[in-house]
């Protein structure tokens, strides 16, 4: 099992997570280059959240992916599969050599992954607005089983346009699912452009709060903030405190394309392909940060 870091993170722990995130970003670029194309902007914006979850918070075990009392992680933004595959390989859930099959016909690894093909995946997603409802069902299910499992769901901010996301949010608030954590990858960009110029989502925190959720705002690229807020969100509330029996949403403020200079905050890199020159430039951008770290 991956050990839970104490909060706050030491400098060394923080550096380890940063290094892991840079490895994952390099891996994302390599998978994307090898497979031809991918949702690279979305994969890069969620990377630090996934690293914080898989290396810090989730009680999951690569040797026992079907362990009943594990925490459940649902990638509601299924197109983040490119980034999730890289994290799963980095954390020992899949063989890193298998990443070369990503996107190939018949491979379990690809854009939108399935729990029947890959045990480390909890639910097949890809169509937006499904994951939170599935996570609500899982949270209800583990509560009935009296398992201590927590359920964590990562959504894109674009999914907050789907009515079904709010159906699920309403149900989670009503069911007082305090072991349910939603993280919104708030990169402010969809395929067409900026959310606030398209159909404004703000004030997003107020919306979640009014649906019965505890809302935490944080920098989605700062491991100290991410880890401590995830820990706060997943801490067992006082059973006598009715007000605390609420699901939590972390609005993780992120940058689409984070870590590759020419992709950052560019809608066109929601989904794209790299030629060899761009691939080298993108890798260099990540490796420069790696050098700065060491």
């Amino acid at each position: 099992m991956i050990s839970l870091p104490r909060s706050p993170l030491s400098n060394e722990e923080c550096q380890q997570l940063q290094a892991a995130a840079l490895r994952v970003r390099e891996s994302i670029l390599r998978i994307m280059y090898d497979s031809g194309s991918g949702h690279v902007g979305s994969a890069l914006s969620q990377t630090d959240i996934l690293v914080a979850l898989y290396r810090g918070a989730l009680r999951v075990d690569p040797k026992r992916p079907d362990w009943p009392q594990r925490d459940r992680f649902v990638l509601s933004k299924g197109h983040g599969g490119l980034g999730l595959a890289a994290v799963l390989a980095d954390c020992g859930f899949i063989n890193p050599e298998d990443l070369s099959t990503f996107g190939k016909t018949g491979s379990a690894l690809g854009m939108h992954m399935h729990h029947r093909k890959l045990p480390a995946i909890e639910a097949a997603t890809g169509s937006l607005g499904h994951g939170l409802g599935i996570a609500v069902g899982m949270a209800l299910g583990v509560r009935l089983k009296t398992w201590p499992s927590r359920t964590i769901c990562l959504l894109s901010d674009g999914e907050c346009y789907e009515g079904s996301t709010w159906e699920a949010a309403l149900a989670a608030g009503a069911q007082r699912l305090h072991r349910l954590l939603a993280v919104v990858d708030r990169n402010r960009l969809t395929m067409d452009g900026f959310t606030e110029q398209e159909v404004p989502l703000e004030p997003l925190a107020d919306k979640w709060a009014s649906f019965g959720w505890r809302v935490i705002n944080c920098d989605g690229h700062d491991f100290r903030q991410l880890c401590s807020n995830i820990e706060i969100a997943l801490a067992e509330p006082d059973a006598a405190d009715a007000e605390a029996q609420r699901p939590t949403v972390i609005l993780a403020q992120t940058i689409k394309g984070k870590g590759v200079d020419f992709m950052e905050n560019e809608a066109k890199w929601h989904y794209g392909a790299l030629d060899s020159v761009m691939y080298a430039r993108a890798l260099a951008s990540v490796r420069d940060q790696h050098k700065a770290l060491s």
């Binding site: 459940r72 409802g133 599935i134 609500v136 069902g137 899982m138 209800l140 299910g141 079904s164 309403l170």
Partner: peptide, 19 residues
Amino acid sequence: VGIAEQNLMAVAAGLAATD
């Protein structure tokens, strides 16, 4: 789940995922 049939099906899928 209230008058929310989409969520009804998603929640059912999640419950099935927990045996």
